[in-house]
Computed example of a mutant assay.
Amino acid sequence: MKICFLMYPWERVSPENDSTLRLIHEAASRGHTVAITTPNSLTIRDTVAHAFCNVLRKSDKLTSNIPSFYRNAQFKRSKLPLAGFDAIIMRANPPLDTVALNFLDSVRADTFIMNDIDGLRIANNKLYTASFSGEASRYIPGTHVSKNKEYLERVLMESQSEKMIMKPLNGFGGQGVIVVEKSAQQSFRSLLDFYVGEGENSNYVIMQDYVDGAEHGDVRILMLNGEPIGAMRRVPAANDVRSNIHAGGREVKHQLTKEEKALCRHIGPKLVRDGLYFVGLDVINGKLIEVNVLSPGGITRINRLNRTRLQAKVIDFVEHVIAAKELIVERKNQFRKVIEDADAI
């Protein structure tokens, strides 16, 4: 199988904890051809989408030590047609590069893309949770999004809680997430001036109901094909509301509760319908706060806490999808041969 990882630059990989590196190592250890590229390396030649790729040189004996694998990896630089890959695994960091998705539009019929580019377009921002309906909607905390400062002030004052969560619509990794309180209304307008800005360059802001227990952290759940495959609790650093690991939080072992399992059952089908096969859910006290679809992390830390290898499940899934696609093509060719032979009689 030939797999291309569309990701951040190789030199930015953190070998000790990087989830993408675990996926690359797993694919390489199975003998698959592995190439890595970045959104800036996409190009078109004679109307055919290509990428300048670093192709991992295969080794007779691949080390099981992943940091060592990273340090010793050797590549060959090549310009390769994207349609030649069996799978393209999207692992680029936020924000979403919409131009990169336009390059991939031309190869989606030939190549399995995970996650699906239409799914990425609709779900790469914090508004995606508002699209859940029916039973799934009860797992979504009240969310308000606007650039209108007067409206946002009214949202805070009309809230049944004394505090709310405020964050920029285009933030990631816990950037800009703060708690705002009714008792600090005088400084709230100043915060809105900073977060929203003025005029044509103003930004959307999210105001979200404060979920009880948020001060104790959140739960990151990794979902594969609509089912949970692993989870961890992220505990915020002292005097910080953010539990993101990159914001100073730490991870602890976690078993999914009955309510969290129910959340996954109700959320999972829509994720699959939208082509979002591998995602990370951020959950607080049974409420879905965010869906991470571009480059969900946590594989290494969940592995360490539970003595498992989640990357094997992800690559298993990709292999099964490709095998199914190949079987469909084989059956089609067999049926065409039968028709051709009948016509020749």
Rank of each mutant, 00 (worst) to 15 (best):
I206N: 07
N40Q: 07
F132M: 13
G248E: 00
D97Y: 04
G286M: 08
R301L: 01
E150D: 14
P39E: 09
A237D: 13
Y277F: 10
Q186M: 11
D118K: 15
T129E: 01
P236F: 09
V13E: 05
G84S: 12
V155R: 07
Q255S: 04
G286T: 12
H320A: 14
R273M: 05
L42N: 10
I165A: 13
N244P: 13
T129Y: 02
Q334V: 09
R234C: 03
I299T: 05
S41Y: 03
Q175P: 03
G297V: 02
Y139K: 03
T38C: 14
A231L: 09
L82K: 08
N244D: 14
A123D: 08
Y151L: 15
N124D: 08
A123N: 03
S106T: 14
G199A: 10
F194P: 02
T38Q: 12
V279Y: 14
A83E: 15
I299Q: 05
P141I: 00
R71G: 02
T47M: 11
Y128F: 12
R336Q: 11
R307G: 05
I88V: 05
D282T: 02
T63E: 00
G226V: 14
R336F: 02
N54V: 01
I328N: 11
T37C: 08
G173S: 12
M223I: 13
Q311E: 15
L310V: 03
K332I: 06
E227K: 15
W10M: 11
G217D: 15
D341W: 09
Q255G: 04
G286A: 11
F103L: 04
L80D: 00
L120E: 04
Y70D: 01
L6E: 11
F172L: 10
P296Y: 08
G134F: 05
L80S: 00
T47N: 07
S29C: 15
